[in-house]
Write a protein that binds this DNA or RNA. Structure first.
Lengths: 147, 147
DNA sequence: TTCAAAGTTGACAAAAATAGTCTGCTATGA
DNA sequence: TCATAGCAGACTATTTTTGTCAACTTTGAA
């Protein structure tokens, strides 16, 4: 069980936007260079993020993307839902009909527990949390270096 | 993010063995018919489970598979680790070297939090728990039917 | 006003992972 | 001794992932 690159790249790119929140828009090109991700591929991901209303695009020269809400109001789960699709450990979670076998309930309950646990974590961590973690880690690193 | 059929089929098959624990071995054929899973494919999965020591095989006529430990001592996480590989939300969790980019720490911490959460859930649910859930659900269903 | 930067869209495709099939074995209990 | 059932591994079809690309639209700035 692992995240695809869509989820990983997407979160990293959104984190970049969060670090930059309040300043000028960041272009796909800038982000793709910072994160070493294919420019074309990132474009696709931002298309999805834009349609989902998580980012706003600003066209024209010096354009780019900005978060459409403050980092404190965007969770990692919001991003992953868009790029990975909602977590669906097993298909029969939502679809009760085609699952009439005898073990149905027992495994279904299990998948739901796993899904809820992941959702609980991802939807409780915001981009602001990540930025804060990042900043405090930098401070610690500086102290360790004796700066 | 979803489980592959390996994990889903494997858990269901192991649940079947748990229901049957203490009785005669179940053959691949029996399980594959109960669960409507390809016999050949199930064989592959049981090969992995056997090598990992989760099941024992009994060869010859009337042979089959049995759990190698009581259901209370096998967690869903044990099964998923074998069939899906350990959870690796992102590759850089274990591998610190090739990840020197600036946002490294912030996203890495995130992947670790998600991974730990899934592991916590899957490794705390045993086959016995599933069997108990299953049995109590059956009782409730019977009551509802007025039986 | 014009042009270049930047976003938008959708088609295309290589590569990897997944899911499943099959064949020919070996072991063993009845 | 033979039918049953596991063992091993090659093989393949399909799907998903991970990109790539080209043509087009919008718009800010010179």
């Amino acid at each position: 069980m692992k995240l695809s690159t869509r989820g990983r790249y997407g979160v990293k790119a959104m984190f970049e936007l969060a670090l930059n929140y309040g300043s000028e828009p960041l272009s796909i090109k800038t982000i793709s260079e910072k994160q070493n991700i294919s420019e074309y591929y990132l474009e696709q991901l931002f298309g999805s993020l834009r349609k989902a209303g998580l980012v706003k695009s600003i066209r024209g020269a010096q354009g780019g993307y900005v978060l459409s809400r403050p980092p404190s109001e965007i969770t990692v789960g919001d991003i992953l839902d868009v790029l990975e699709g909602p977590i669906e450990i097993s298909e029969c979670i939502d679809d009760e009909d085609n699952c009439s076998r005898i073990e149905y309930c027992a495994t279904r309950l299990l998948w739901i527990k796993i899904r809820d646990s992941v959702n609980q974590v991802t939807h409780s961590i915001t981009l602001e949390d990540m930025v804060n973690d990042y900043k405090s880690m930098n401070i610690i690193t500086s102290i360790k270096r004796g700066e």
